[in-house]
Design a protein around this nucleic acid. Structure first.
Length: 269
DNA sequence: CTGAGATCCTGTCTGC
DNA sequence: TGCAGACAGGATCTCA
């Protein structure tokens, strides 16, 4: 579920917990993508959260000495619940307990992860990550250079977190559609103009998705813990055999790197 | 070094 | 209904 906009939306939803004391963490299941660090609860119990930030698809919760790194994987989500509403859902693995409320990490498939570290930027899972697509650094020249350094299908390149972070399977298909570039194109054959279009499309769709996600923050807080991110209007993803909005050709589904990929053969060349 | 493919896990949907 | 098989929005690891 979570690509950059969903993670960013989640970060914004829990940002009100900045400058509050995390009383304790209760871990019901340490068996996530990686085992949760043995002493993680002790290191941050009764400590004040200073800031909550995002790097790639990681949610970073910073305390004075340590930071928590939370990744939502494929199916992870956070929900905020009043302490008095004492109910559980299946696959609630971690509870972050505050004075009146708690944040609960629920993850059906357990591809998510939770780590504690002194310096997240130096953590093995973070230090080799690529450029933030919404940063200034990510411009046409930067993407053009990335494209010239390898010869992957462009969609694979976009999804390689060591090159560009945050773009997952949905937004890769969508941004290529907006740019009229085929997901099968080899990166070395993509010219500077096309890189410009692609950079603009990626930034545009990510910003749009974040904006849309923001409108559901209220749901995020709701007492019943209602789930689900706003489903923004997609142009190609999941729309196999439906008509392309630009040319009325049928949207095709193909597999690239074992991942479903949707595109219009007619408009994307 | 690169790139292809397997893999972790559970739930849901499709087709017989 | 039951059941097998495919598939799901991530990312690492192994191996050629």
């Amino acid at each position: 579920m979570p690509e950059l906009p969903e993670v960013e939306t989640t970060v914004r939803a829990i940002r009100p917990f900045e400058n509050t004391i995390l009383k304790k963490i209760i871990i019901h299941n340490r068996n996530l993508r990686w085992q949760v660090d043995e002493n993680l609860e002790d290191l941050v119990a009764n400590k004040k959260i200073l800031t909550i930030t995002r790097r790639a698809k990681y949610i970073l919760i910073h305390f004075s000495k340590y930071s928590l790194m939370l990744h939502l994987g494929m199916s992870g989500k956070l929900r905020i619940q009043n302490n008095q509403d004492n109910y559980f859902k299946k696959h609630d693995h971690v509870e972050f307990i505050f004075k009146d409320k708690k944040i609960i990490f629920n993850d059906v498939r357990r591809f998510g992860s939770l780590h504690v570290t002194k310096n997240p930027n130096e953590h093995i899972l973070i230090k080799n990550l690529g450029v933030e697509p919404l940063s200034r650094k990510f411009d046409k020249n930067f993407l053009f250079k990335l494209c010239s350094e390898t010869n992957l299908e462009i969609k694979k390149l976009l999804m390689d977190q060591r090159k560009v972070v945050g773009v997952g399977n949905i937004y890769a298909s969508e941004s290529l559609y907006l740019s009229s570039i085929s997901p099968l194109r080899k990166s070395k054959e993509i010219n500077l103009d096309e890189c410009e279009k692609l950079v603009k499309s990626i930034k545009k769709i990510l910003k749009y998705a974040i904006k849309m996600g923001g409108t559901t923050l209220k749901d995020f807080y709701s007492a019943d813990g209602s789930e689900g991110y706003f489903k923004l209007k997609l142009n190609v993803y999941g729309l196999e055999n439906q008509n392309c909005k630009k040319c009325s050709n049928k949207i095709e589904k193909i597999i690239i790197g074992q991942r479903s990929t949707f595109y219009c053969k007619e408009c994307q060349t």
